[in-house]
Nucleic acid binder design. Structure first.
Lengths: 363, 363
DNA sequence: TTGTATGCGTTATCAA
DNA sequence: TTGATAACGCATACAA
């Protein structure tokens, strides 16, 4: 099967008119008589003429559309971000075309090649597998407006929007410490992900600031970034099989899927939260407030993030030349404390625990 | 900012060669000397030449890409479906471009117009607002391969893949009856949605088969399809404010978001499930097994659905002409019984309850 | 007021 | 082995 749309040329033949006459009539040009105009418009409607966007793009070198490169659809955080972007571009009259990389560099490259020349600009979150960004760099140097969001790429000087991953992790860890945890583990996604590294950095700083020594065995990265349950399962088993005095009493998970899977693991193995292990994790999943125990999360401002990034791209699209200065917008994630990490009931108890640590540090 | 890519013409000038020579060299044609070939290929690599897909498409009338029209990204069911489609098309060497309609007919029409001529085929789930499908019909008549999934359109004869919504609702209702519920309410999405209508039909049949009379007040549709929490909230309030003897003891929700919101409502108002109200609903949300009480769901085979629909579109893409016969693939959703609807603990008790009803019917 | 010719980036046909 | 040219669908400068 092949799509054979009506073209202007065809209509011109049918109506015994010149091609340009038809074209101008459709554009409601003043230099066409009302009679012909009506004849053309009516006929176009009758045969359901749709201008070929491909031809339009080729000619105008303008597509009135932008592309979003996303890692995983099936990730609430990502879809929330896209929602924010979509509504911003819709208002601005742009069509949005989304492609998924599934964390594969090969797919990412294909996706970007596919979108290049099809769109006027790109919103990109680079895939976790990606090492080299030559393909993007080159595109950018040729003038393609690109804005990075969430998983940014420092090699390319352009606008970017991201969450404050460092502080999110820092505050979450501090909260666990405040709850009395002293052996706090960290399970991230892929070690190669800058995002995960930042989250680890925040985690480490919080522990250092509290004077707590970290064991290497408490820190786990997942080779495939935690796409599959087993990866998290293995990490959890390693943590929980540590000898009693090394066994963690708190856990920070630094990746949405990992958070969900760690939670599942703990529930499946009847490990009580927060008594046996206090859990807080990065997550934008829905329903985390209704699981039992309810799940403490570091929640990113996903829709906002999408909107801000969209605004940056729109700015690039409108400016004549590359801007001299680039903005980096940083959004603070929300720390939502729920049952899975709440060991101390009252605020004062928490305060006391925190001050104890401070004392400990000074010693 | 504007993207200015390197073209064949430009390279031909730079290398002092003819345009067609360059083109053929890049295609590794045998009629080009190895020397020239190398010169061209090296240069192309150096300047990072990317063939312009727009021009390619215009010429070839072939895009090697397909479009997916989706209602809401931010809906686990949808993203799971897209995942299934994506992997199938990736294997087949197609790029996939996804656009969201957000349930708006206007967006849907724009999206379809945008995709027409940009893609070789379309996977469409029509938006809940959409009444007329002329835009699609016409496109289809001109030869655009279209496959409907989930929210199908009966006016257009083509392949389609969907869940057995009727049976899903029927079995879910039967389960509630088996649990001893006799006043079973139904909260759907938009009344206009054929899917919701089918689910209601299944619900009604199950009640009828069990000899249970339905009250109109037990059935609620949501004007905007339940996008916002308040819609579900209002419906729930109406149900729960009914006089004691009319107040439902069971509830079937027929839309993923509505299920989540109904669950939230019940938790927020401390209404015990299943004792005060047994809940089962259509849902592909993650974590439904870890909420407390765990949530009984009618879960669609989302990824499978995507794969099957993708297969149908690939078949259309490969066939020379419109097929004489169209397939409609129907997938049975899975009924997962969990705490929110499980009043009777043992299987035998449930059996007894069911046989009681059967007896009642015969009377 | 209408028609013809050109170019957008490519490939394919034909000629050299 | 190479190069010029037409065509894909459209808009527009220019000619009539």
């Amino acid at each position: 099967m092949k799509f054979e749309p009506v073209t202007i040329k065809q209509m011109a033949r049918d109506l015994n008119l010149g091609i340009s006459t038809v074209s101008r009539a459709l554009h409601d040009s003043h230099e066409i008589s009302e009679a012909t105009k009506k004849r053309v418009v009516d006929y176009a409607r009758k045969v359901n003429y749709i201008p070929n966007p491909i031809a339009l793009s080729l000619r105008a070198k303008r597509n009135r559309s932008i592309g979003i490169v996303i890692s995983q659809f099936n990730n609430p955080f990502c879809s929330q971000v896209v929602n924010g972007m979509e509504s911003a571009f819709y208002k601005a009259g742009y069509q949005v075309s989304i492609v998924q990389t599934s964390e594969s560099t090969e797919k990412e490259m294909k996706a970007i090649q596919y979108l290049s020349s099809r769109v006027d600009g790109l919103l990109v979150s680079i895939s976790s597998e990606t090492k080299s960004t030559e393909h993007l760099k080159d595109l950018y140097e040729k003038g393609m407006p690109i804005v990075f969001y969430d998983r940014i790429c420092r090699d390319i000087p352009t606008h970017m929007t991201l969450s404050d991953n460092y502080r999110g992790a820092y505050e979450a860890t501090r909260h666990l410490i405040g709850q009395g945890c002293r052996k706090i583990a960290f399970v991230g996604g892929a070690a190669t992900q800058p995002i995960v590294q930042e989250r680890r950095a925040g985690y480490l700083s919080a522990l250092e600031d509290a004077g707590i020594t970290v064991e290497d065995k408490w820190i786990h990265f997942l080779p495939k970034g935690g796409v599959h349950y087993v990866e998290t399962e293995v990490a959890m088993e390693r943590l929980l099989r540590l000898p009693r005095d090394k066994r963690p009493d708190g856990l920070l998970t630094a990746w949405d899927k990992v958070t969900a899977d760690a939670y599942k693991y703990l529930r499946r193995h009847n490990i009580r939260m927060p008594e046996e292990l206090a859990l807080i994790g990065f997550s934008n999943f829905p329903l985390t407030d209704y699981v039992s125990p309810s799940l403490s999360v570091v929640q990113q401002q996903s829709e906002k993030l999408g909107e801000v990034a969209a605004g940056q791209l729109l700015a690039l699209l409108q400016s004549k030349r590359k801007p001299l200065k680039y903005q980096t917008e940083v959004l603070m994630p929300e720390i939502i404390i729920r049952e899975s990490s709440l060991k101390l009931k009252s605020k004062t108890e928490e305060q006391r625990a925190v001050s104890k640590i401070k004392g400990a540090k000074k010693r």
